[in-house]
C-alpha cells in the first residue's frame, strides 16, 4: 500500500454544545481520490475547515504525511502540503489569472524586499520562473490564454478551474476540493472528472473531495466516506456505498412499510 497522506483520528468540533463533527476518521493514500458526501449540513465543509485549521478541532488528531498537525497554523499547513478550493469561489478577483496562481507560490519564492526594490537578479529570475510555472499549471485546463485577464471577469466554470490551479501552485501533497462541480453542466462535469484524474496522475497527490454530483463521485473516487449529522455513517468503495441501505436512508429518508 502506498503512503498515507492524510489520517484523521476521532476528529471532532463542538459549536456551542452542538457536535458539528464527531469522531471523524479517514485515511487517504498517495494517488488516491477520496470522496466525502452527505446531505446538506452534514459537516463536510467543517471537516475541510478542521483540516486546514480554519477551525481548531476540539478533539482528535490529524496527521499529514505521518506528522501531527496539532501545533500548526493555517499558513504552516499550506507549507506542509494542504491546499484547498472553496464551495463559494474565493479567488482574488482584482488580480489577474496568472497573479492568482503566483500568489500561491509566494512561500517558495526566496527573494527579499530589498532585492525586489533594487531589482537584483534573483528577483527577475524567481518572478520569471513563477510566471512560467503559473502558465504551465494553467495549461492543465487550457487556460494559458487567459493569464492576464482579471480573475473576477472569468466565466463561472473557468473560475472554478482557476481555484484548482491556484491550489496546485502551493505544491500540495493533499488537495481538498469543496464541490468542484457545483454549478457545472454535465459536459463540464465530465471534463472536470477527467482533469481531476489527470491531476492525480501527474502530481501523484492525494485528493479529498466534497461533491453532490453523484456521477462525479461514483465515477472517480477510490473510496467514499458518508457523513450525516457530523457522524460517519458509511465508508467504502463507490459500489458498496451505492447499495448501502444506511446511506440511502440518509439521503432519501426511511422507506415506510405498507
Amino acid at each position: 500500500m502506498s503512503n498515507v497522506v492524510l489520517k484523521c483520528v476521532d476528529l471532532g468540533i463542538v459549536f456551542g454544545g452542538l457536535a458539528a463533527v464527531n469522531d471523524f476518521d479517514i485515511e487517504v493514500h498517495e494517488k488516491e481520490i477520496a470522496g466525502l458526501i452527505g446531505p446538506n449540513g452534514a459537516g463536510k465543509t467543517t471537516v475541510f475547515n478542521l483540516l486546514t485549521k480554519v477551525y481548531e478541532p476540539t478533539s482528535g488528531e490529524i496527521f499529514l504525511n505521518g506528522e501531527s498537525t496539532a501545533k500548526k497554523t493555517t499558513v504552516q499547513l499550506s507549507k506542509a502540503g494542504i491546499a484547498r478550493t472553496f464551495q463559494n469561489i474565493r479567488l482574488f478577483d482584482k488580480l489577474t489569472v496568472a497573479e492568482n496562481v503566483m500568489t500561491a507560490m509566494n512561500q517558495s519564492m526566496k527573494y527579499s524586499l530589498l532585492e525586489a526594490v533594487l531589482r537584483l537578479p534573483r528577483y527577475w529570475k524567481e518572478e520569471k520562473e513563477a510566471r512560467e510555472k503559473a502558465l504551465d499549471l494553467l495549461s492543465i485546463f487550457d487556460m494559458q490564454g487567459m493569464a492576464d485577464v482579471k480573475a473576477g471577469s472569468l466565466p463561472y466554470g473557468a473560475q472554478r478551474r482557476l481555484e484548482i490551479v491556484r491550489a496546485l501552485a502551493t505544491e500540495p501533497s493533499l488537495l481538498l476540493l469543496d464541490e468542484p462541480a457545483a454549478g457545472m453542466n454535465p459536459a463540464e462535469t465530465a471534463e472536470l472528472m477527467e482533469n481531476i484524474g489527470r491531476i492525480r496522475d501527474k502530481f501523484g497527490i492525494a485528493i479529498l473531495l466534497i461533491e453532490h454530483d453523484m456521477s462525479l463521485v461514483m465515477g472517480i473516487c477510490d473510496q467514499i466516506t458518508v457523513l450525516n449529522f457530523g457522524q460517519v455513517i458509511a465508508r467504502g468503495t463507490p459500489a458498496e456505498i451505492q447499495s448501502n441501505p444506511v446511506v440511502i436512508e440518509a439521503y432519501l429518508g426511511k422507506h415506510k412499510e405498507g
Binding site: 486546514t52 480554519v54 493555517t74 499558513v75 499550506s78 507549507k79 491546499a83 484547498r84 472553496f86 474565493r90 479567488l91 482574488f92 478577483d93 482584482k94 488580480l95 497573479e99 503566483m102 500568489t103 500561491a104 509566494n106 512561500q107 491556484r166 491550489a167 501552485a169 502551493t170
Partner: peptide
C-alpha cells in the same frame, strides 16, 4: 501580490500560504 490578495480575502490568502 500578497498585499493585494490579503486586501481581498484574508482567509483565502492564508490558505494559500500567505
Amino acid at each position: 501580490k500578497a498585499m493585494r490578495a490579503v486586501s481581498e480575502d484574508k482567509g483565502a490568502a492564508q490558505l494559500m500560504g500567505i
